[in-house]
Simulated scan of single mutants.
Amino acid sequence: MSATDDLRAAGVAIWLDDLSRDDLVSRRLADLVATHGVTGVTTNPTIFATALADHPDAYAPQLAAGRAASRSACETALGLVADDVRAACDVLAPVHDASGGADGFVSIEVTPDAAHDADATLAEVRELRALVDRPNVLVKIPSTDAGVRALEEATAEGFSINMTLLFGLARYREVMAAHRRGLDRAREAGIPLAGIRSVASFFVSRVDVEVDRRLAEASGGRAHPLRGRAAVANARLAYAEFEASLEDAPWQALAAAGAHPQRPLWASLGVKDPGMRATRYVEDLVAPHVVETMPSKTLRAVEAEGRIPADGVHPGLRDARDVVDALAAAGVDLGDVAATLERAGVAAFGESWQRLLEAAEAA
């Protein structure tokens, strides 16, 4: 068996964190689905800005049509993104059908202008869902205060959502609670719960980057024994929260009415530390019902050198709690780390969207 086979056997869904028009035209995405176990795709403005810059000819006819129709850069960019996401949804439609709607999703993100406005976010969820017009699209919402409120409203209306830019346990609890409230409201409104799916995108490598920076400052630049240990510990404890959320009676009642759990999705699995194995995050966070999203580089590394355990989370939960306690003793506040990374993530989201607009204008 290959490493990707081992991941699937462990109950992990493999999603590609990458997409371009060239991937679709060349059938590279279809090949990854058919032969490499890929069952979903996540996207963001950076991915599309890179795709547009690297393959301008693939988008030339659509860009020319946008200019002829006097569309704004925003309208043009959204059209490009929606077309690629729609085409990717079509590639993954057989996966979606074969899994009974559990997998085969492609994500499209709301614009950064809506990140701190719940009403604007909800309006964009409706717009993007209609624009792509496929049952296997997930609309990505950043997990800000406004995003959490929008998640509840969107879920109550029956939309499937990918909550992104999650870094800490406190915010994750808020996301899980909002998702459940939305399901409760959808049930009361007579909306079938079976058609509502959601993932919570918990970022990994960025946590190590920020924590390791703080540890280096505290130790005067010397190597710290906790270096590179925070991100996995943080994600493992998030998974424990996920499991615990499925055990109470209110959730069991929702499940009996057809509701599906909001699956944890591990994002940012590409390692940033050159001293770390390229597949380390993928291996250490293997657990049933999770999604692991990987850029092409990480997927290739997993196929070439991955050593996939049957379970990378549960055996390490005690160690995860010890690591978090040790970080606190060393003066690292993971709550503040999460808040810092959320602010930086939203700011980077805006910058990426601006790069996409500029790439559309330049092309």
Rank of each mutant, 00 (worst) to 15 (best):
I14R: 00
D22G: 09
D23A: 15
L32S: 01
L32Q: 02
A34K: 06
T35V: 06
H36M: 09
H36L: 11
T42K: 08
N44G: 07
A49F: 10
H55Y: 14
A58W: 05
L63F: 14
A65E: 14
S72P: 10
A73S: 09
A77M: 03
C89F: 01
A98D: 15
A102C: 05
G104I: 08
E109A: 10
A120Q: 14
E124V: 11
E124K: 04
V125Y: 03
L128Q: 09
R129N: 15
V132H: 13
N136M: 07
E153W: 01
E157P: 00
G168S: 00
M176C: 14
H179R: 13
R185Y: 00
R185W: 00
R185L: 11
F203V: 01
R213F: 03
H224R: 05
P225A: 08
L226Y: 07
L226N: 01
A235S: 13
L237H: 05
Q252P: 10
Q252A: 12
A259Y: 10
Q262C: 10
S268E: 14
S268Y: 09
G270H: 03
G275E: 12
R280M: 11
V286E: 09
R300G: 08
V302P: 13
D311G: 02
D319T: 12
D319M: 02
R321D: 05
D322G: 05
D336R: 15
T340D: 01
A344K: 06
A348Q: 14
W353L: 04
Q354E: 12
A359V: 12
